[in-house]
Every structure is written in structure tokens, then in C-alpha cells.
Amino acid sequence: MFALLVYLFLIIPLIIITGAAFGTDEYLRFPPQGFSLKWLANIFEVEMFVRTFKISLEIAVLGTVLALLVGIPAAYGLSRYDFVGKNFLQGFFLSPVLVPGIVFGFSLLNFLIIKYEMPVYTSLLIGHTVIIMPYIIRVISSSLENFDYSIEEAAISLGASKVKTFFVIVLPNITSGVIAAFILAFINSFNNVPVSIFLTGPGISTLPIQMMSYVEYYFDPTIAALSVVLMVMTIILMFIIEKTLGLSYFAK
């Protein structure tokens, strides 16, 4: 009974926001009066939403690809081999998740944009690549744990080169881990606020940042409609995670 109440607390706000998105009123209310899709359509009328949605998508995809490119070899090295300083390096690769986002975002603004005059877009991409890295390393490492390295050794002893073995034997065996890592990293980048908020400039902003400044001035159901779109996106991505990694991964 108690558990059910707690879960109502978790779910009801999201139901309310969904209901509010489909009303006909000019301001947010629940239960909504009438039914209309005009607020959903209105998302596309707000040019900044469309533009920042594209930027968020771009940054999330590019950042995730970059993090995978450096993260997969690192995760492989960390789980396959034993070497001096292994524990320290493992901790170091996971450390971005421990650094408060707001501190990291501020430091990047300070260091990259002000001190070294790097472009805002590049800095934003770098920031996201770094915060994504721990998710990649963790998920790939855990799927490598289930990989039987004797298969790899068999390939090598049969004459395949190490590089070829990695691409032909190891990588195909951890595909679901790579997909799950991609999705998790993508979600974390796409939803990020504290790092992005410092790394915006003329014409460059992300969707969550744009949404935050929108609600400061307007309180109409457009944001609720946008929230619904984002929740649908989350449901689809969750479905993929469940199929690849299993959602019980989060209870660890």
C-alpha cells in the first residue's frame, strides 16, 4: 500500500503534464478543458525549439561517437589486462561522474572559452564527450566481463592479428553492450543542463537550456507538449536498453 502511494507520487506528475499538453486553454491546467493538438503543433512554431533540438541531437550523437571511439579501447584495456596503476586509472576514467556538473561546466567556460578562446560549439561537444565517458566505460566493461576471452585466444593462436581479432571476434560479441552504452550516453548528454548552461553562445544552445529560459517567461502548454515528446523518446530508448542491457542494470 505504502509502496503504491510512493509510486503514485513518482508517476502522477508525469501524467498531469501529459494531460495538460492536450488541453485547449491558453494556460496550463489539469484536468484539461477539451482536447487539442495545437500545443503539440506549436512546438514547431517556436523556431528556437526546433533549432536547439537539432543542436542537442547533434551534440549527443557526436559526443557519444567520440566517447565510444576512445572509450571502447580503454574499457577493453582495463578489463583485459593487468598493469601498474590499473585501479587508479579505472577510477580516473569513471571520475567525470563524480564531478558536480555545474562545477565542470563553469570550469570549461573558464578554461576553454575564456582562457584558450575555443569556439563555444567545440567546447560544448568536448564537455559532453567527457561527461559521457564513464557511462561508456562502465557498460562496455560489464559486457566484456561476460565475454569468454578463450575465444579471442583461439583466434590469435590460429594466426589472426590482434587488431583483426578485436574487430572480428570481440566487438561482435559485445554489440548489445555497445548499443546500450550508446543509448545511455545519448540520454545523459541530451538531458544535460548544468554543463551546457555555461557553454551557450550566440545561436548555440541546447534544448533543455532553451526550455528552461522559455518557462521563465511563458507558462503555456507548449512546454508540456514538448515534455510529452521527450517522454515518448525516453520510452523508446528504454525499450532498447531493456532489450540489450536489461533495466535491472540500474539496480546495482
Binding site: 509502496a3 509510486y7 513518482l10 540520454i187 526550455m211 518557462v215 508540456a224 528504454m238 533495466l247 540500474f250
Partner: peptide
């Protein structure tokens, strides 16, 4: 139950805070 706990976790914090404004 785990699905319904993970879902909010993966939903944008902006959306989650906004729902309480409503």
C-alpha cells in the same frame, strides 16, 4: 516496479521539475 522507477530517472530533469511547477 523497476521500469516505473527507471523511467523518471531517464526523463529530463527540466521536465520533472516543470511538472511540479504545474
Amino acid at each position: 516496479y523497476i521500469i516505473f522507477a527507471v523511467f523518471p530517472l531517464l526523463t529530463s530533469p527540466v521536465v520533472r521539475s516543470f511538472s511540479w511547477m504545474v
